[in-house]
């Protein structure tokens, strides 16, 4: 858990690294920060639960149930924005 504020680029890098090593995502020409990670087959229900746990633990944030079912955590960009928003609001 970290208390020092970090910028959006660091946040995105950290999430991207997680997705690469845990969800075996490959970000290249075909898969961008705006690709739907569920449709691309990188996340399923279990993978999503793990991702949420990772985000909550490593950024010291909490998601509400509404946020979790909102479909807003579906792309690298959207995940980063949501996480960064929570970090900045602290």
């Amino acid at each position: 858990m970290t208390n020092t504020k970090q910028n959006s680029t660091d946040t995105q890098d950290k999430i991207k690294q997680y997705l690469i090593s845990n969800s075996l995502a490959e970000f290249d020409a075909g898969v961008t920060e705006n690709s739907d990670l569920f449709k691309e087959g990188f996340l399923d229900s279990f993978g999503y639960i793990e991702l949420v746990k990772f985000l909550e633990k490593s950024f010291g944030i909490r998601f509400t149930d509404e946020e979790l079912v909102s479909n807003k955590l579906n792309t690298l960009k959207n995940i980063t924005d949501m996480v960064q928003g929570k970090i900045d609001a602290r």
Binding site: K39, G41, S45, F46, G47, I49, K53, D65, V69
Partner: peptide
């Protein structure tokens, strides 16, 4: 199973939504 999921609270709406692509 995913790490540390000895106890997993499953919000059913959430589960069904995240399953749609699969």
């Amino acid at each position: 199973v995913p790490k540390d999921t000895a106890i997993l609270e499953l919000n059913l709406d959430f589960y069904l939504k995240t399953r749609e692509a699969t």
